[in-house]
């Protein structure tokens, strides 16, 4: 029933890595270290299981192209931080939760349902405008760049190329 154990040292390394990354980009990890590390352990489990660090609080399909919006940090982190002071899992929190002014609560799911996602995919056609370069948008942090292809790694939030969408 249970998954193979994840080495605690690996969890600690991962925790320090994303904490540093989050703080350098103006994000905050949940200060409840035990809760946060248990989520990180689950992300590592998902990396081992699926080959990508899918959100531990959502059901993964096992296919990266279907789950690209829920690879942690997910596409929904920024709007959820803005509206609810936390991401869906409670891994990332707002400054007000960090300082204890607000309390962490479970929040509603923002990700469209499987059927809605299918419809969105069908209706999504890149607009072709008369520009010297297409504009690409990082769906995780909103970084924009005008070039033939998105970068290998987002220079701001470090996510992979497939997290970019054609913006203009």
């Amino acid at each position: 029933m249970n998954h193979p154990e994840v080495d605690e040292a690996k969890v600690d390394d991962y925790y320090l890595k994303i904490k540093k990354q989050a703080e350098s980009a103006g994000y905050h990890l949940n200060p409840d270290v035990e809760f946060t590390k248990s989520l990180i352990k689950s992300i590592i489990i998902n990396e081992n299981r699926y080959g990508y660090g899918a959100c531990p609080c959502r059901l993964s399909s096992g296919m990266r192209e279907d789950d690209v919006d829920i690879i942690c940090p997910c596409d929904y982190r920024d709007p959820d931080l803005q509206n609810y002071d936390a991401c869906y899992c409670g891994l990332y929190v707002s400054g007000e939760i960090l300082t204890g002014e607000k309390k962490l609560k479970a929040i509603p799911e923002r990700r469209p349902s499987p059927e809605q996602r299918e419809k969105i995919m069908i209706n999504k056609k890149p607009e072709s405008k008369d520009l010297p370069f297409p504009v690409w948008r990082c769906r995780v942090c909103g970084y924009l760049c005008a070039r033939e292809e998105p970068p290998e790694t987002c220079p701001i939030c470090k996510v992979d190329k497939d997290r970019f969408e054609r913006f203009i």
Binding site: H3, S38, S42, P56, C57, R58, C89, A106
Partner: peptide
């Protein structure tokens, strides 16, 4: 529930 989810565990 999901075995990996913090809110499911709670």
């Amino acid at each position: 529930a999901l075995s990996t989810c913090g809110w499911c565990k709670k």
